[in-house]
């Protein structure tokens, strides 16, 4: 039998996808509920600016948020890549799709790192 090419990146990408899926499942629903639904609809009173800034200035918060942003983006990248492959049968464009998805995740991670490092 011929030895098959073992993709070196796939296990790493899958781990990033999985970690992102887990952290997103645990953290995103409450954050999105609060900032996307509850505060805008006045179901709850939004925290004042000083409080949020204080929370954001905490290095632990920034670390957690960076992890969340980067991993969640890689989660999206990996899953969306296969959604395009299977759901729309676009596997023939795999090079473009891979560049778009993982490239997007890398750029997004850099932006989030920058924004979190420069918190006022």
């Amino acid at each position: 039998m011929t030895t098959r090419r073992r993709p070196a990146a796939e296990p790493l990408l899958w781990l990033l996808f999985s970690a992102g899926g887990m952290i997103a499942a645990l953290l995103v629903p409450i954050l999105l509920f609060l900032f996307g639904v509850a505060f805008p609809l006045d179901l709850l009173t939004p925290p004042d600016h000083a409080h949020l800034l204080a929370v954001l200035r905490n290095p632990i918060t920034r670390l957690v948020l960076f992890g969340l942003c980067a991993l969640a983006l890689f989660h999206w990248a990996h899953r969306f890549r296969y959604t395009l492959y299977d759901g729309l049968q676009l596997k023939r464009f795999s090079v473009v799709i891979i560049l778009f998805c993982y490239g997007g995740a890398v750029v997004g991670s850099i932006i989030s790192a920058y924004l979190l490092l420069t918190v006022g």
Binding site: A72, T83, V119
Partner: peptide, 24 residues
Amino acid sequence: ELSSVFVAWFVVYLLLLINAVSGG
């Protein structure tokens, strides 16, 4: 599988929020 798009959207929204908080 499409839920991943909304996870990504949330990251964008979150970054906008962080940016806003940083901005004063």
